[in-house]
Design a binder for these strands. Sequence first.
DNA 1: ATTAAAATTTAGACCAATCTAAAAATTTAT
DNA 2: ATAAATTTTTAGATTGGTCTAAATTTTAAT
Lengths: 217, 217
Amino acid sequence: MSSFTEENYLKIIYNLSAWQEGEVSTNALAEQTQTRAASVTDMLRKLADKNLIHYKKYQGVRLTPEGERVALQVIRKHRLWEVFLVDKLGFGWDEVHPLAEELEHINSEKLIQKLDAFLGHPSADPHGDPIPDPAGRMPHPEHCRLTEVVPGQAVVLVGVTEHSAPFLQFLDRTGLTLGCRLEVVEVNAFDGSVQVGISGNAPQFVSQAVARNLLVS
Amino acid sequence: MSSFTEENYLKIIYNLSAWQEGEVSTNALAEQTQTRAASVTDMLRKLADKNLIHYKKYQGVRLTPEGERVALQVIRKHRLWEVFLVDKLGFGWDEVHPLAEELEHINSEKLIQKLDAFLGHPSADPHGDPIPDPAGRMPHPEHCRLTEVVPGQAVVLVGVTEHSAPFLQFLDRTGLTLGCRLEVVEVNAFDGSVQVGISGNAPQFVSQAVARNLLVS
DNA sequence: ATTAAAATTTAGACCAATCTAAAAATTTAT
DNA sequence: ATAAATTTTTAGATTGGTCTAAATTTTAAT
Ligand SMILES: [Mn+2]
Ligand SMILES: [Mn+2]
Ligand SMILES: [Mn+2]
Ligand SMILES: [Mn+2]
């Protein structure tokens, strides 16, 4: 059995590994866990003792197959609870992450199986992130960033790579909800901003910083 | 803010107070919390420092108004989650208590308000226990034990005072589900057992030990 | 190749929640 | 009223997760 804290470390290691090649650093974990590097080192020794991570001093860390299994279960629970909060309870997609951070640590195979069925076996959470299947297999849907779309192309918004409440609230105000149709009119070579028609409306400018965090397909 | 552990102590003190007059003893708390008396004493000092309980050494303990407020919030959450698990996810009433023990510690006013609305503002949990309102007022519905019903009287099963899984599963097998009609045919003076018609079926015998834990109105 | 800077680990401490063993207070029995 | 039994509290230790400050290792710069 893994504690609340251990599960958080494993999940964070998984997520950091997904966005960079090679091992995860102690400092990166300290930042994500909101603790100090010394505390991270202590926890890494414990996780290594439990064979949940591969760890060599000063060399960074990566998950073992068992560690990855645990991480994927936690992520599965997190994302299913987010779907519940948005689809069933009517929360906004900008509000649910902190609640899911708590709910994800409730450990009951049966609970999550029944929740999954109640939600209709969703394949993605409210931010478009894929939900691992019960066996812990993570789907890898086809998509690219809005910055990579060529002018004239029409696409659908399927996900975001930034989850902060201010960013998501900005998208709400701009009409950029998941599933909306986007038609790229022009990519500004000067600042990388994108002129885009949202759901058939008159084109608007979206900064490169925003466009970079929009996943489309 | 109260920790997970503190909330459990307050809830248990509330429940023990409801079933006996006067203060709650250290040993009773040790039994309910599955810890040792020494651990209870430590925690009582902490709760007293936070003004959540009245505590005089060797004299037992009772909740302050603030302690009772916290306890009732936890109980409200516990019972709402039990309704969710049974009504929405399809759990049996014998399975939900341990899960609710975990879910009750998720602290979000908004979550519980939305959950309450989603469930249609239920007034009782799957065991017939009343759900405190958002302000923490606990309803006290009219009811009595089946052992107090006189022969010939027809009543409705509205609650149980024993929550163990074996007991609840026995009720399921016997057809004693919440809301069913009960007609008391005879109370056996010898062993206190009750002969009762369940939902219009041929009368059956129910032991006094069982009848004592059935609430009717 | 040295040196400076940055990252990481160790040493030693703290806090919450628990334990066992022993001491003190209260209750019950004689 | 005294002694015995029970309950409760104290003393001292442990575990998980965290911290600061200092030492060590790795990486980057000269
Ligand atoms: Mn999230
Ligand atoms: Mn998400
Ligand atoms: Mn319960
Ligand atoms: Mn209940």
